[in-house]
Design a protein around this nucleic acid. Sequence first.
DNA 1: CAATTCAAAATGTGATATCATTTGTCGATT
DNA 2: AATCGACAAATGATATCACATTTTGAATTG
Lengths: 224, 224
Amino acid sequence: MQHTPLPEFDRPPEMTGQEYAYRRLRKAVMSGWLPPGASLTIRGLAQLLDLSPTPIREALRRLSSENAIEVQGNRRLKVPEMTPGRFGELVALRVAIEVHGGLRALAHVSDVVIDEMAEADARLAAARAAGDLDRASALNHAFHRRLYELPPDQAAMPLIESVWLQLGPFQRLAQRGPDGEPMRDSHAKILDALRLRDPDDLAAAITCDVQSVAELAETRLLLV
Amino acid sequence: MQHTPLPEFDRPPEMTGQEYAYRRLRKAVMSGWLPPGASLTIRGLAQLLDLSPTPIREALRRLSSENAIEVQGNRRLKVPEMTPGRFGELVALRVAIEVHGGLRALAHVSDVVIDEMAEADARLAAARAAGDLDRASALNHAFHRRLYELPPDQAAMPLIESVWLQLGPFQRLAQRGPDGEPMRDSHAKILDALRLRDPDDLAAAITCDVQSVAELAETRLLLV
DNA sequence: CAATTCAAAATGTGATATCATTTGTCGATT
DNA sequence: AATCGACAAATGATATCACATTTTGAATTG
């Protein structure tokens, strides 16, 4: 199907094949290994992952419900294309939900959490400096997730994950700042707002962070 | 499994079994036929829908990705329980995403659309007056969907649908106002805001609408 | 009578086979 | 040379089967 091998993935023995296929395909979309527009076949993926069509099919259903892949009526599956319009909509959606998530989390923020997030940001900077985009992207997500998952009865996180997945490789590419480190500043602003427990600052900081990454990705991918 | 027959569902001949199972189970969750906490078995549902386990499993995977059902590690599936905390979180999430969706749609609103929405609201009022909760709930969703689906490159709608699904039967029960018709007023406010093309009014109206339904549902279901 | 044990039934998972459709290709026709 | 058509290969959809694990419930034990 492609020449690069799939991003490797460690499969615990107790993990079901369906779950394994889901995680691995998800990662393949995230990392851009399955590029937008790529058409998929159940049997092809089954062969690629050394599984039967059945678990592949279930994994694809999950991904399609997260809008990570598109089920075309004519019995064909593909990774959705990205357009400037869709990109903008997804970024705006990220802002809306993540600001909501951040504000909801604010009441549950503790100094310990802030320290952990700061540490996560440091690891992120290291990964970015090392040029490991996939790891940087994962750590960036972890930074945000740490915050949004604070409140109990969490319902926003799965939706945020869906948007992240749809932005897929486009976000990843923005992990390496060309000049300076724009995102580092954004994260610092988020951390400052958390320390002050200031909702307005936090909303502004999250908005800024999401949009700065978006700008970078947009100029890199869409306008080139 | 239960004594009431499943809500009937018209299956077009070209619809795949998997899609049919998905739609029908989705409706069953929405209507409360599958009550929160109900545990599901693949084989049981297969027998119920007269299908083999394979398409049922795919349908369940889709529903689980929409957080309409919960996959418990111990190989058991259940409809998630509702708690006051989760209910509040879902309502807040509805507000956040739907306000976003409404504001995004505002630039695409035309008089024709407003008229159609007004007509949809009239049908909704009729269904509510007739006591048909399921139909009223569906028409209420259609009213909102008509607005949010206006912008091209739509990405918010699937997430909104997921939240609707998770609120499931709780929203439905709020369709019948006890005294007067609170939602009618909310919808009227939304329509007024649309006519004026006023973003602030629209955001306030959507917030009010969602929360008024929520209040009603909450007092009915959670505090009883 | 409550707790425990253990076998039978049920369940989730995954592979395989079958069928109807679709896609792809090669050759004939215009 | 381009277009169309038919046949072959590939594909999605689904039922069925086999297997390992879990659940269940009744018999047993203290």
